[in-house]
Design a protein around this nucleic acid. Structure first.
Lengths: 122, 122
DNA sequence: CTCTATGCAAAAACTTTGCAGGGAT
DNA sequence: ATCCCTGCAAAGTTTTTGCATAGAG
């Protein structure tokens, strides 16, 4: 997903802070916390939180909490699931597995919690 | 699941605070936040948080964050999935749908995020 | 020019920790 | 007697808000 597409499908104004944040989210291409990227950001944390909220409102960013009790954010790009391991706390993107359907519901994100492959076999 | 079973399968000491907390969790039978139950609790919040952490450590309680940005806790009872609606913020237990499998992983909880049936049809 | 976005600082919300007293074994 | 649990108060962490200024359209 390109920034251009994002902007076209919504009507938020693309300030330089928002562009920067989107670029980082797109480049990372995996769920990231504020702490993960704060050093890369030139904006204030208030601006980060205000904009990441806005992105969630207009449905271009998803958010979930991981086991480290931090919130992770990700651009709504190719739909895929996430696996959070209760043992090693890793977050894994399951891009190859088929996206499930639930009759009558619209699924935007799936978060599995449990024990990951690595931890299971060790 | 009865308290007796829980205690038998672990070896934590069953204090009256823990018994109270477990009873409430079992009775509610759905994910609840600290705020939801604080008025019912006779223990201090520190004790609540310490015990709910302990319950998670010994794998008798699951936790996830909902869209209201609060953590919800639930006894690991019959395995089932959860649907969190991005629109109405409701949490729904999907008890009737089949629990998925992921080769090599152990799944303890599944959280779907999206738009629920109600919101889709209105 | 008007309306929205930003930075800074302060506040809020939620959770954790230190410590001294209590309870259980 | 020892070890774990609890309440209370204080501290910690993360996120949000108020306000004055800056920037976009």
């Amino acid at each position: 997903m390109q920034i251009q597409n994002i902007i076209e499908k919504t009507n938020i104004s693309l300030t330089s802070a928002r562009r920067e944040l989107l670029e980082i989210l797109i480049e990372e291409n995996k769920p990231i916390s504020y702490e993960d990227i704060k050093d890369k950001l030139s904006m204030d944390k208030a601006t980060f939180y205000r904009n990441i909220s806005k992105f969630q409102e207009i449905d271009i960013v998803n958010c979930f909490e991981s086991n480290d009790k931090k919130r992770y954010y990700e651009v709504q790009n190719t739909p895929h699931s996430h696996f959070i391991c209760n043992k090693c706390n890793s977050i894994e993107c399951l891009k190859d597995i088929q996206y499930e359907k639930l009759e009558g519901y619209k699924i935007i994100d799936i978060i599995y919690k449990g024990i990951c492959k690595n931890c299971m076999s060790s």
